[in-house]
Amino acid sequence: MKAIVLREHGGNDKLRLETEFPDPVAGPGEVVLRVGASSLNYHDVFTRRGMPGINLPFPVIIGLDVAGEIASVGPGVTDWQPGDRVLVDPIDRVNGGLVGETIHGGLAELCRVPEHQLIRLPEGVSYDEAAALPVAYGTALRMMNRVGQVAPGERVLILGASGGVGVCAVQLAKLAGAEVIACAGSAEKAERLRELGADHVILYTEEDFLTAIQQKFGKPARRRGAANRGGVDVVVNFTGGDTWVRSLRALRLGGRLLTCGATAGFDPKEDIRYIWTFELQIRGSNGWEREDLHELLDLVQRKRLRVLIDRKWPLAAGAQALASLENRQVTGKVLVGA
């Protein structure tokens, strides 16, 4: 079969299209999918580069998010049959492991997974929509709803709003009844975020987001009381790096900073004075649960949640697709497939 294969860590040139990679064969309790779509995430960039403490079983086919049609089933599989439309939960919650990292992923014509990782697709949800959900939208839903508990009337500032997690976070905050301030790097991205429901957009290439927040909503005050509404209630920051301290300073008294990653640096400068002085809450969120994916599929089926797809690349251009994500040239999700 054709597949985008990684045989050693390094730059994007290490991702190679191979046309005669061995076809997977379904073993006991497994199925083989004919891949309809696979979406890329920044985790795929880290997998290609190499991550401290994680040793991969090379060769590896990247692509955590996979949706497609079952092509064949292995011995003992009774609940699934060829032709079934499915989404794969990338996390193997029984045996451990992760699709696209320890298990061959979706940047291939075929993909083998254990049957317990399958979720049946509802009618009306396409492979493209489904493949965009688990890592980015699943992470966003858990962070915003389960951990962050975003509430009606709150002001929510979202950094990195034009990425996969960000575009979902914008929509979930609006569904919760919040006032959304989204940060974007271009006028084009800003317009797409407004289309998704963002009430305000800050172009961080033209103005500092902290200055913009303080000018619009006032500076946070340490005094308690209903009159103290300076700053925002929630900041969503999964970039880290040099945005961390400014995110703390944008929060009102008792505000919440939500984080689920650190794409711009995991060891930012810290100033804990803002945390104790303003009684801030730092809430970390890690991944998603199976019920989160079911909820997302339901939201998409009912047209409550839009899957924003930047572009779908052909399999042969899988390396270029990942480069577009790594270089932050996208709004929403990057897909690869037929």
Rank of each mutant, 00 (worst) to 15 (best):
C111E: 05
A212G: 11
F209L: 02
E188I: 04
G166N: 14
A176S: 13
A173Y: 11
V170F: 06
S186K: 00
G153C: 06
V113G: 03
H200T: 04
M143W: 07
P114S: 06
T205L: 00
G177E: 06
R112C: 15
R85H: 12
G76L: 01
T78Y: 02
A198L: 14
E154H: 12
G177V: 10
L121M: 02
V86Y: 08
L203I: 00
Q171W: 05
L87S: 09
S186I: 00
R192A: 09
E109N: 06
D92E: 12
V167F: 12
A136T: 11
A176C: 06
I119K: 01
V94Y: 04
E154N: 13
V135G: 07
E195D: 14
G197W: 07
L118R: 05
A176H: 05
A132C: 08
N145E: 09
R194L: 13
I181D: 04
A151C: 13
D84R: 08
H104P: 00
R192Q: 13
A151N: 13
E109K: 03
G197V: 11
Q117L: 10
N145K: 10
A212M: 13
E154V: 15
G148I: 03
D92I: 15
G97V: 14
L107E: 14
A131V: 12
P82K: 07
A108P: 00
A184K: 02
D89N: 15
H104T: 00
L133C: 07
R85P: 02
V180T: 11
V170P: 10
N95V: 01
